[in-house]
Structures are given as structure tokens and as C-alpha cells.
Simulated assay, not measured.
Amino acid sequence: MTPRRLRELCLEQNAAVEDFPFGPDVSVFKVAGRMFALSDLAATPLTVSLKCDPDEAVRLRAEYPAVVPGYHLNKRHWNTVTVGQLPTRMVRELIEDSYDLVVAGLPKAQRLRLDRP
């Protein structure tokens, strides 16, 4: 997967935006001002940090060497994924799951604006 494709997958999420609060090298993808993905798109290997259900995070880390606790993030709720070592479909699903977890934590009024009650 290319950095361009990773960016596209993140921005395909409803109302997702790319921001650079940590400097020009780190893309932060947000919905309603809350982060759901974080990546240095120029890094090698290409990685992305994604929010994850804590039980699922542990399972993924045990099953896939490409999934490790979130780098500089709450390791209970975030994983860092080496993108090229997993199928594209799985990376897409992990991005969608991260986005859905963040949206689920939004106030009801914001979720309704996103068409996600």
C-alpha cells in the first residue's frame, strides 16, 4: 500500500479531515475534531496508528507481528500497524473500526449530523 492510498482510505470516511498538529511530517486524520488515525506518510516502513477496542487490540497484537501497541499513544486503546505487512482489505477494516470507535464516542447531536445514530 502506498502513502497516497493510506491517505485516501482515511479521507474516505464521512467528514474526515487531515490535520498537522504535530508538524508538517505527521498526518492526523480526524472526525469532528477527534483523531482516528495518525501517520508519517513519508516514513519507511509505512505505519499508521489506529484506535482499537482494547480486547481486539490484544488479539491483533498476538496474531500479527505487524500490529504493536500504539507508539506514543495510550497502548490500551491504540495500535500501530505496519501497513505493507497486512492485506489492504484488513488495513481498510482497521481504519473503519477506528473511525467507528471515535464516532461512537461523539455526543449524539454530532453523530446525527454524521448520519450515524
Score class of each variant (00 low, 15 high):
residue 73 L to A: 07
residue 2 T to Y: 00
residue 61 R to H: 03
residue 87 P to V: 09
residue 114 L to E: 10
residue 86 L to N: 09
residue 96 E to Q: 13
residue 33 G to C: 12
residue 34 R to N: 14
residue 116 R to H: 07
residue 11 L to A: 09
residue 82 T to W: 02
residue 29 F to R: 09
residue 108 K to E: 06
residue 38 L to W: 07
residue 82 T to K: 13
residue 44 T to F: 04
residue 32 A to F: 00
residue 39 S to C: 10
residue 88 T to L: 14
residue 88 T to N: 01
residue 107 P to C: 05
residue 42 A to P: 00
residue 23 G to Q: 06
residue 112 L to E: 15
residue 106 L to S: 09
residue 93 E to C: 00
residue 64 Y to R: 10
residue 38 L to H: 11
residue 15 A to P: 00
residue 46 L to T: 06
residue 38 L to T: 08
residue 74 N to Y: 09
residue 110 Q to G: 00
residue 71 Y to P: 02
residue 87 P to G: 10
residue 47 T to I: 11
residue 47 T to H: 14
residue 30 K to H: 02
residue 66 A to S: 11
residue 59 R to C: 00
residue 57 A to Q: 11
residue 78 W to F: 09
residue 67 V to R: 03
residue 44 T to N: 05
residue 97 D to Q: 12
residue 5 R to Y: 00
residue 73 L to W: 13
residue 3 P to T: 05
residue 103 V to W: 11
residue 92 R to E: 15
residue 31 V to W: 07
residue 71 Y to L: 12
residue 56 E to R: 15
residue 29 F to P: 00
residue 86 L to H: 07
residue 61 R to Y: 03
residue 58 V to W: 01
residue 7 R to Y: 09
residue 50 L to R: 01
residue 8 E to H: 10
residue 12 E to L: 08
residue 33 G to A: 11
residue 66 A to I: 08
residue 61 R to V: 07
residue 101 L to T: 06
residue 63 E to R: 13
residue 97 D to W: 06
residue 56 E to M: 10
residue 102 V to P: 05
residue 35 M to H: 04
residue 96 E to I: 09
residue 38 L to M: 14
residue 90 M to A: 14
residue 50 L to G: 07
residue 58 V to Y: 01
residue 31 V to L: 05
residue 66 A to F: 11
residue 56 E to N: 08
residue 108 K to M: 13
residue 37 A to L: 06
residue 11 L to Q: 02
residue 70 G to M: 10
residue 100 D to E: 15
residue 95 I to Y: 08
residue 105 G to K: 13
residue 17 V to E: 15
residue 99 Y to N: 08
residue 6 L to R: 02
residue 96 E to T: 13
residue 52 C to F: 03
residue 26 V to K: 05
residue 67 V to Y: 04
residue 26 V to H: 03
residue 57 A to E: 07
residue 68 V to H: 01
residue 2 T to E: 10
residue 18 E to Q: 12
residue 90 M to F: 10
residue 83 V to D: 04
residue 27 S to N: 01
residue 19 D to L: 12
residue 48 V to F: 02
residue 61 R to M: 14
residue 104 A to I: 04
residue 116 R to E: 12
residue 25 D to Y: 02
residue 32 A to K: 03
residue 31 V to Q: 07
residue 30 K to E: 05
residue 105 G to H: 06
residue 62 A to F: 00
residue 114 L to G: 08
residue 112 L to S: 03
residue 5 R to S: 12
residue 112 L to M: 14
residue 70 G to D: 09
residue 82 T to L: 01
residue 61 R to C: 11
